[in-house]
Simulated assay, not measured.
Amino acid sequence: MAQQNDVLQQTHKKRNYKPAIIIITIIINGLVALLAGLPGVENFDAFDVKILPMLNAIFNSFTFLFLVAALIAIMKKNVTVHRRFIYAAFITTTLFLVTYVGHHFLSESTAYGGTGILAGIYYFILITHIVLAAIIVPLALTSVARAWNMENERHKKIARWTMPIWLYVSLTGVLVYIMISPYY
Rank of each mutant, 00 (worst) to 15 (best):
N5R: 15
N5G: 10
N5C: 12
N5T: 15
D6V: 03
D6M: 05
D6A: 09
D6P: 00
D6F: 00
L8W: 01
L8F: 06
L8D: 05
Q9T: 11
Q9V: 06
Q9N: 08
Q9F: 02
Q9D: 07
Q10W: 05
Q10K: 09
T11I: 10
T11L: 02
H12N: 05
H12G: 01
H12D: 02
H12W: 10
H12Y: 09
K13L: 13
K14N: 13
K14H: 10
R15T: 14
R15F: 08
N16G: 01
N16S: 04
Y17L: 08
Y17R: 00
P19W: 09
P19A: 11
P19Q: 05
P19G: 05
A20T: 12
A20E: 13
A20P: 07
I21C: 00
I22Y: 08
I22N: 04
I23T: 11
I23Y: 03
I23M: 11
I23S: 07
I23H: 03
I24W: 14
I24L: 15
T25G: 03
T25K: 01
T25I: 06
I26T: 12
I26K: 01
I26Y: 05
I26M: 09
I26Q: 02
I27E: 11
I27P: 02
I27V: 14
I27H: 06
I28K: 07
N29M: 05
N29C: 09
G30D: 06
G30H: 04
L31E: 03
V32Q: 09
V32R: 04
V32K: 03
A33E: 10
A33N: 11
A33C: 09
A33V: 15
A33G: 11
A33K: 13
A33H: 11
L34W: 13
L34G: 14
L35W: 01
L35T: 02
L35D: 00
A36G: 10
A36H: 08
